[in-house]
Amino acid sequence: MSPETTDFLYPFIEGDERDSASLLADLSASAEAKWGYSERLRQETLALCHDQLASVSAAMARRFEAGGQLFAFGNGGSATDADDVAQVFTRPPRGEPLPARSLVTDHAVLTALSNDIGFDVVFSRQLEAHGGPNDIAVGLSTSGNSENLLVAFRQAAKRGMLTVGLAGYDGGQMGRCDELQHCLVVRSDSVHRIQETQAALIHALWSAVQSEYQAKGAA
């Protein structure tokens, strides 16, 4: 059997490839396609979530007006999205800064809780310490199944907080969680594409809260 006949099955063992031109063309085409898909997913999701965004942002604006603050949390890439939430609310490119914090930034707290109790409580225990009835809990996940988010939403609900979740796929357990009042779902099964649209949802949510908050403030 000549080596070429099995190449299509095991492309990764091909060690003598030297001309990068065709690979670069393939990569570029693949990036084009994925970029296009990501952009379509963003637009579709924003359209699908239009009404939901309006009601969530109105509810959030009421909490801020009542003196509440926002707590954002997530794991891995979603942890960085939680930081994004805190940054855009507190240091907005326009409009008024609003109080928001990420619960993933304090490594002393995260390691203490993980070590002493368990990783499932890293967000809920922080909400227990800081959260009050005017506050907002925003949890981000792609699978919708992160245990520490579900535990945190239950704690937040117990404390009378507004609970907002961002999830992917079909929403996972977050989509079926009674304590989670609002769950914005990006309907895709690619973690990367979900996160890309979640970044857009974060900014859309912030923008809507700004409009609501300003409209109310002017009235």
């Binding site: 990764f12 063992i13 490839e17 990068s20 990569l27 693949s30 990036a31 970044a199 900014h203």
Partner: peptide, 23 residues
Amino acid sequence: EQFVRIYHLLWELTHVCFEHSGL
């Protein structure tokens, strides 16, 4: 938002390159 796309794609394409050991 688009930075996220850029570095996600950078990661995805980098891993595709690993399948072309000759390059």
